[in-house]
Simulated scan of single mutants.
Amino acid sequence: MRAFVDGSSWNKVISLLQSKGLNVLAVQNPMTSLQDDIDTTTRALASLAGPTLLVGHSYGGSVISGIGAQASNAAGLVYIAAYAPEEGESVLDLNGKFPASPASAHFVPSYRDGFVWIDPPAFGANFVQDIPEIEAQGLAVAQNPTALVSFEVPAPVPAWKRLPSWYLVSKNDRTIQPEAERFMARRIGATTREIASSHASPVAHPYEVADFILHAVATVR
């Protein structure tokens, strides 16, 4: 779960997790509102049997925080350079606690009314600066625009208050300030690791991301 890229951004991580025998499902959220994304993910989670770890990247952290509080089979939350809001707090509220990220200067209206994305020419340098430019250009034009209201709505009671959590900080993040990530990780009491990655760590550093998720899986088991 994430903003601006779709579920295919997890492909490399998915293959690594499946090779370890894990059952993996990448949810394609509509990105029309936080509640719509929570509802979509709730239905996906209901299709899975047994204890399940919810993994969210970027805005996806808000989604897993909201769904986990109401899902009986949610066993833990894994945040990958993701938002972990408190009840009543929005993504914009969290961003306002820290200096603006470099990417924020490039959030522009997309081709869908009421939706935003990262200006494609600025995408590579500000979202995933540590992969080949030709690959970044492909992701830039395949972005999944996000409804601006998704960033404005107050979050529901977060699941991290009752579930164990893990947080992977991207030290070279230009989309969410790394200090904001560290702040959220501390606030939720997450088991935390840092890697030298851009914001899009599942794309740029799949082995490190998969290893972190596997660590969480082993702990839950």
Rank of each mutant, 00 (worst) to 15 (best):
119 D>Y: 04
47 S>W: 02
47 S>G: 02
116 V>Q: 14
67 I>M: 02
85 P>Q: 09
43 R>K: 15
79 Y>N: 13
106 H>I: 01
52 T>F: 06
71 A>P: 07
98 F>T: 15
70 Q>T: 13
120 P>E: 04
48 L>D: 03
45 L>G: 01
46 A>F: 00
48 L>R: 05
47 S>H: 04
46 A>Q: 03
106 H>M: 06
110 S>C: 10
57 H>Q: 10
90 S>F: 03
79 Y>L: 11
116 V>D: 09
81 A>G: 12
94 L>V: 15
100 A>H: 08
81 A>K: 04
88 G>C: 01
49 A>T: 13
96 G>R: 15
51 P>R: 12
75 A>V: 10
114 G>H: 10
80 I>A: 03
77 L>S: 11
62 S>V: 11
78 V>L: 11
83 Y>I: 05
77 L>C: 11
88 G>M: 09
115 F>M: 08
69 A>N: 10
43 R>V: 14
92 L>D: 10
102 P>K: 09
69 A>T: 12
64 I>N: 03
71 A>G: 10
107 F>A: 03
80 I>V: 15
123 F>P: 02
105 A>T: 01
115 F>P: 01
73 N>C: 10
102 P>A: 03
56 G>Y: 02
119 D>N: 09
122 A>K: 07
54 L>I: 08
60 G>F: 01
51 P>W: 11
59 Y>S: 00
59 Y>G: 00
122 A>F: 14
53 L>H: 12
107 F>C: 02
59 Y>P: 03
105 A>P: 10
53 L>C: 13
96 G>D: 14
83 Y>F: 06
101 S>W: 00
68 G>T: 14
95 N>E: 15
47 S>Y: 05
79 Y>C: 10
100 A>T: 01
108 V>S: 11
71 A>L: 07
66 G>D: 06
115 F>H: 05
69 A>G: 13
72 S>P: 05
106 H>Y: 15
109 P>N: 12
98 F>R: 04
104 S>Q: 03
119 D>M: 03
96 G>Q: 14
103 A>L: 13
56 G>I: 02
102 P>Y: 06
102 P>M: 05
110 S>E: 09
60 G>Q: 02
111 Y>V: 08
119 D>F: 10
70 Q>K: 04
91 V>I: 13
43 R>P: 09
45 L>K: 00
46 A>K: 05
79 Y>G: 05
73 N>R: 09
67 I>L: 06
92 L>T: 12
58 S>M: 05
118 I>T: 01
71 A>C: 07
92 L>R: 15
62 S>K: 01
98 F>A: 12
62 S>R: 01
64 I>H: 09
65 S>M: 10
115 F>L: 04
117 W>E: 02
91 V>A: 08
125 A>G: 04
